[in-house]
Computed example of a mutant assay.
Amino acid sequence: MIFETSEPASIFKHQKLTLDFGVFYFCDQFIIVEINEGIDYTWDKIEIVAMMVVKHYGNNPKLGYISNRVNSYSVDPSLWDKFHNTYNMIVASAIVSYNKFGSLNAEIEKRLTYKSTKRCTSLDEAIVWITNLKEFKN
Rank of each mutant, 00 (worst) to 15 (best):
V128E: 15
I39R: 02
C27M: 07
S72P: 06
S78K: 14
T86L: 13
N71Y: 09
D76R: 06
N105T: 08
Y25M: 01
N36E: 13
Y65M: 04
Y41H: 06
R69W: 05
K134A: 10
Y65A: 03
P61F: 01
E4A: 06
E125H: 03
L19D: 11
C27A: 14
E109A: 09
K55T: 14
A94R: 00
N36Q: 11
K45D: 06
K45E: 10
L133T: 08
I35G: 00
A126F: 03
I95G: 03
Y114H: 10
V128N: 14
Y73R: 04
E109H: 10
E37Y: 09
S6V: 05
S116T: 15
I108W: 13
E4L: 07
K118C: 10
I32T: 08
N59P: 10
L63H: 04
Y65D: 01
L123F: 09
I95K: 05
T131D: 01
I127F: 01
M52S: 10
A92H: 02
T113W: 12
V128T: 12
Y41Q: 05
N36G: 12
W80R: 07
T113R: 14
N132F: 02
L19C: 13
K45A: 01
M51E: 14
L123S: 08
D20I: 04
S97V: 09
E125G: 04
S72W: 07
L63I: 05
H84G: 05
L63G: 04
D20L: 04
K110G: 12
M1C: 13
L123E: 02
I66P: 00
N71I: 07
K110D: 15
D124T: 14
K118A: 13
R111M: 13
N88I: 07
M51A: 14
Y25D: 01
S67M: 06
M89V: 03
G38C: 03
Q15H: 15
Y25T: 02
A92R: 00
S78L: 14
V75I: 12
V54P: 07
K82L: 09
L79G: 04
P77Q: 08
F3L: 08
H56T: 05
N59I: 12
V54S: 15
N59E: 15
V128L: 13
H84R: 12
K82T: 06
T131F: 02
Q29V: 01
L79A: 03
F3R: 01
K16D: 03
D40H: 09
E7L: 05
I90W: 05
V49P: 01
I90K: 00
S93C: 07
W43T: 06
I66T: 03
M89Y: 07
H84D: 15
S6W: 06
V49I: 13
K62C: 07
I48D: 03
N68W: 02
L123N: 05
K115G: 14
D40E: 13
M51L: 14
F101D: 15
M51R: 14
D20F: 07
E4R: 13
P77S: 11
I31W: 01
K100Y: 14
F3V: 00
W43V: 00
T131H: 02
N105S: 15
V54L: 15
E34S: 03
V33K: 01
F101M: 13
D124S: 12
E34C: 04
S72Y: 10
Y114G: 09
S6K: 02
L123W: 02
L79Q: 05
